[in-house]
Design a protein around this nucleic acid. Structure first.
Lengths: 352, 352
DNA sequence: TTGTACGCGTTATCAC
DNA sequence: GTGATAACGCGTACAA
């Protein structure tokens, strides 16, 4: 007597145990659990009560096998560790994803791969083993081969941002352009006429979109806008800064960076060169990491709501899997947060 | 003819398809695939060739159901987003975990929960649904209830660090104590006689271990060592610094922080107060984030190899699940990396 | 509402 | 030693 309901001890109850105890068939338990019509309300309540009493919940493995669904979504991170580690985006994004997945009974499968061919293999493996029903495609690249790959693997997907090629998947996007334009406007309004942008890897779409927006905004305001490309790392952010500050003649008076990490490294390089930020050089970042607010000078940055982005992407992906696809979603555009690291251009009159 | 081997198109091949094509039984295909004895070498090769040709790999769902294993491990992050986002530990840890899991055919299931009761529910759910075979227990707390919970749920586990209570699980640990002692020694050697430590949440074991080590090291060297407790966030790191610098009489000349994020915020607070780092105040962090090297002044910090930690933890957990448990593992202790943010105490003679 | 076939590998039992 | 056969794991879904 009473060898049930002992979590972890002995055999855990199955649907058959619940059915027997409730005096009904397995099928009816399944119907009751999934809230399907055709079950007498009284019977349903009794079944659910028995299930709760026995501490039974359906085994996701068995469910997966019979429904041909995994009840899990995948996220493949392909980045070098130093760069992921310094990036506040993914932890926040994942928190948002989880907020949606958990109540939906879905799990997140995370894979982390170094840059290289392993990435495609990882998607293939996730599909071949039937680990996940769909994947989040982050860090889109130019002509991203993952779109065709993932589609051919029969996986559902959602892209973070709009791809530059035809896509079979819905996109959930946050517009960086507006934040970059606001940054350039902010700097030009402060009297800067020679700007620079330290961009991320050119083949990553969000990096190139920011770069293009920088160019366009500088053109629109009639100011000089140089660009140096990097790999998003603090090291290269610092090196790019050194390069930009080297020439005396055309030295920019303001630099925008494609992430906060590089901006902080850039400030350090400037300070080492004897420049004061923002007196001699204005600096702005991207992502609005928590630390941006707490350094000195505090860092002007462009804020993206990564948590909401994750939640929206999860909703869209779940809908696609459920067969009721949602439209592309454009979230609130990234917003400039002006702080102390940007100030009047040297020699410029203070803005009124 | 020829409707097989089309990834994603139509029905994917099953073990029965492979068996039929190879002219053997399902069971033999299974044996061949898993490298079991009792299969003729020639037959085995033929089976494997056919499987490869058809692009078949076993469906984890079916495998899970029959073997009663999930082939997945879980990691539950319970932290506030601002704190996870600024922490370089988990991305690196996960990269190390993945390095071991991927070749072993295991997946990582990641859950992210806010501080609160949801955490225990998440472990319960992972176990009830049979999502994972084991979990990584990170951020151990004092008298951590998760040990008993996870054990009662019948999950395998590995703890990151040694718990302060009896544990049924193996531990993989990196000793922070040595790094903290080295930090205090470094500062005392530089002439500092009044130190302070900005500690993390007291109920988190690694925070309290660092704090205790700080106290002990200060005692051993006969210097003053004050402690302020925080929640690991940049905000509270800054506030703690303000508090420490407020009194004129007993103001410390050096502050060690329990992470780099707080140390950077602390430097900012000091600079705002008109102090120069390290001339007026020495500062050191913990974790050795990538950014520590690139800020100005560069940040003295204590380095932990999170990637190796992840890899070792994964190996130990996999061994536990396989029924061949490994011993507790102590990795290389955390190491002090002295940089520019620590220097001679004000008024002290320069070290010879 | 019930009975039962089914999904797809694994493994124990048997036969040659 | 090689190999086939069939039961099994646990929900789901359809015919009855």
């Amino acid at each position: 007597m009473g060898d049930e309901a002992h979590a972890g001890r002995g055999r855990r109850p199955t649907i058959a145990d619940v059915a027997q105890r409730a005096g009904v068939s397995k099928g009816l338990v399944s119907f009751a659990l999934n809230g399907r019509p055709g079950v007498n309300a009284v019977t349903r309540d009794r079944i659910l009560a028995v299930a709760a009493e026995m501490g039974w919940s359906p085994d996701v493995r068995a469910r997966s096998l019979s429904t041909n669904r995994s009840f899990a979504l995948g996220l493949v991170l392909r980045r070098d560790i130093e760069i992921v580690a310094g990036d506040p985006f993914f932890p926040a994004f994942i928190a948002g994803v989880e907020r949606e997945l958990s109540p939906a009974g879905q799990a997140l499968v995370l894979a982390s791969v170094p840059t290289g061919p392993l990435e495609a293999d990882t998607y293939r493996k996730l599909a071949a083993e039937r680990r996940v029903d769909g994947v989040f495609l982050a860090d889109l690249r130019a002509h991203d081969e993952r779109l065709a790959l993932v589609d051919s693997l029969g996986l559902a997907a959602v892209t973070l941002g709009h791809p530059d090629i035809d896509s079979p998947f819905a996109a959930v996007s946050v517009d960086d352009v507006e934040g970059m334009i606001a940054t350039v406007d902010h700097l030009v309004d402060l009297g800067h006429r020679s700007l620079a942008h330290v961009a991320g890897t050119a083949d990553m779409l969000h990096a190139s979109r920011r770069r293009d927006a920088f160019h366009a905004a500088c053109g629109a305001r009639g100011v000089v806008g140089r660009v140096v490309e990097t790999d998003f790392s603090a090291r290269q952010g610092g090196e790019a800064t050194r390069e930009l500050l080297a020439g005396d003649a055309d030295r920019p008076t303001a630099i925008t960076y494609s992430n906060d990490l590089m901006a902080l490294a850039g400030i350090a390089v400037a300070q080492r060169a004897g420049l004061s930020v923002p007196r001699d050089l204005s600096v702005s970042g991207f992502d609005d990491s928590d630390i941006a607010r707490y350094v000195y000078p505090s860092l002007t940055s462009v804020a993206t709501d990564a948590v909401e982005w994750g939640a929206a992407a999860a909703r869209v992906l779940l809908a696609a899997i459920a067969g009721t696809p949602l439209e592309d979603t454009d979230l609130a555009p990234a917003k400039l947060i002006a702080r102390e690291s940007t100030g009047p251009a040297p020699g410029a009159p203070p803005p009124h």
